[in-house]
Amino acid sequence: MGSVLHHALFAAFACAIAGYFFVAGNSMPASAGRLPVLLSVLVFILSGAMMVKAVRSSRQNSEQEAPEAARPPLQVTRVAAYVALIVAYIYCIPRLGYFIATPLFMLLSYLYLRALGIGRSLLISVGFSLFIYLLFVRFLKLPIPMGLLEPFLG
């Protein structure tokens, strides 16, 4: 049943986008709104078809009860916390500067995910940031925001 709910959520999301395009497209001159309106109708139809198929598959699966493959369980909390860390990282870059936010994000992520020990996490975080600096700032001349490090690296 979880699968049906997930499909329903995605179908609702697709229909919401299509609904916006349909309404806005209809208020535009015909030549500009024609394709978006046609495509939104297509998205409505296909979302409905996907839902019907999900319900049918769910019924068949519950009758057959296929055995679950032996895989480690999905760590939902870990994924959610990691996503939150990434959002915080993107938020901090313009404020702290890329070369403070990046090693900090890498270090915190490695420690949270228990990927490496503190020493190696620190080494990789700083080393990788240095690599990015050399490639994107020195070689590609990209104006990456330096933030607090502006006086030293800017």
Binding site: Y82, I86, Y89, I90, I93, Y98, T102, F105, M106, S109, Y110, L113, R114, A115, L116, I124, F128, S129, I132, F136, L142, I144
Partner: peptide, 14 residues
């Protein structure tokens, strides 16, 4: 995998 994942995110952002 976890080591790679963090590096991928950093590369995506930049």
């Amino acid at each position: 995998n976890k080591t790679l994942s963090v590096a991928i995110v950093v590369l995506c952002v930049v």
